[in-house]
Design a protein around this nucleic acid. Structure first.
Lengths: 203, 203
DNA sequence: CAATATACGGAACGAGCGTTCCGTTTGTCA
DNA sequence: TGACAAACGGAACGCTCGTTCCGTATATTG
């Protein structure tokens, strides 16, 4: 009774209007704790972390976690959506900039920064074995849309070579994140420098 | 007894001299079938494939598989070593070339080609959560050594910017492989073009 | 403060998968 | 060809992990 629907709207996050019955205070607090814990754990250990561990980290029982997110995948999606919405917002903000070239480069940097050591986000954005449904794919589309506009503008301005696609860039930038271990200091910066240099129109 | 030792030398593959007791004919044949099946399955489905499925694909029982490779990880390692040895050989071959720049670019292409749609190799080479022991890390070192020499020569020749490291390049190139789905035709080629362009010394 | 729906915790269940065990088959060698 | 070690197949075991269930606790409302 009504629980499925609450889940659905909760999954959509900031997008939909508030659910019919507002959550009880402790429930809302726990929901946030779970999301925060999941974000950290997924980022640190990958999607393989046991659900119980996330629950423990959040200081709640497994049952509580499942009350809020009916499935591990749903939890994962909720975490991703938060990241993607932040990214999309950043993209829209950069679209206002004057120089399309530096706007694109700054977005690329944000992308890399957000994705660093978050293999989940990386996999999700590059589409590796993760199939989105409904709200999640909408968020992904928002990110891609913002990125596409930035790229197009920079290409029209003559700063960027015209043969690369949004998907190419996604993969390239995300690739620099898959190995974000603190091993090599400045490694990611150097890689991004190479990519950005390679993007400029030759000559 | 003596089985552990046979495993050890079998794991080292082409490197060590032949084991004391030569394998029976059917055993040798099955070993090859298992390796071939594992290579295909790992490449297609990732390291998550059940061992039983590999055994079935190879047309043997699970027990047989475990007789040859005492652990799933051992099987995985054996597959990887084969790939790495091929790569290292290619690197040594290219080190003979006249133009250090094109030699490096050709090696990068080989690397990308070998790694395409083989997430296992990608993860292994970039060091993502896979810890090698003994022979495997030797193979990895061989690949890295060959790569390092090619890079150094090209940098000395003034073709390649001097701030990038072998590790950077590994990550960058492997990044172009993580999404090798047949979605975008020519995507990998374009990405490699960007990377190679970015590697050249500016000006 | 009492009544009640809401939410909680954690034990228990079941599926999937790596690994082992053992009775049976087959290659090898005299 | 007969005997024996080597190798085989696949059922069975145990562990991990996602998910469910239910008795208990607590926020909310009048």
């Amino acid at each position: 009774m009504g629980e499925k629907e609450r889940w659905a709207s909760a999954g959509a996050g900031l997008v939909s209007p508030e659910a019919a019955t507002p959550l009880r205070a402790d429930a809302r607090r726990n929901r946030e704790l779970i999301l925060a814990a999941a974000d950290e754990m997924f980022a640190a250990e990958g999607v393989g972390v046991p659900v119980d561990e996330i629950a423990r980290r959040a200081g709640v029982g497994a049952g509580t976690l499942y009350r809020h997110f009916p499935t591990k995948e749903a939890l994962f999606e909720a975490v991703l959506i938060a990241h993607m919405e932040r990214l999309a917002a950043r993209g829209r903000e950069l679209a206002e900039r004057d120089d399309p070239g530096v706007a694109l480069f700054e977005f690329i940097e944000s992308l890399a920064h957000e994705g660093a050591s978050k293999k989940n986000l990386v996999d999700a954005l590059s589409g590796a074995g993760i199939d989105f449904k409904a709200s999640a794919s909408a968020s992904k589309a928002a990110v891609e849309g913002a990125f596409r506009e930035l790229l197009l503008r920079a290409q029209k301005a003559g700063t960027i070579r015209t043969d690369v696609t949004v998907a190419d860039l996604f993969t390239l930038v995300m690739g620099t994140c898959t190995l974000a271990n603190p091993v090599a200091e400045g490694s990611q910066a150097r890689m991004l420098a190479v990519v950005c240099a390679g993007l400029r129109v030759p000559g």
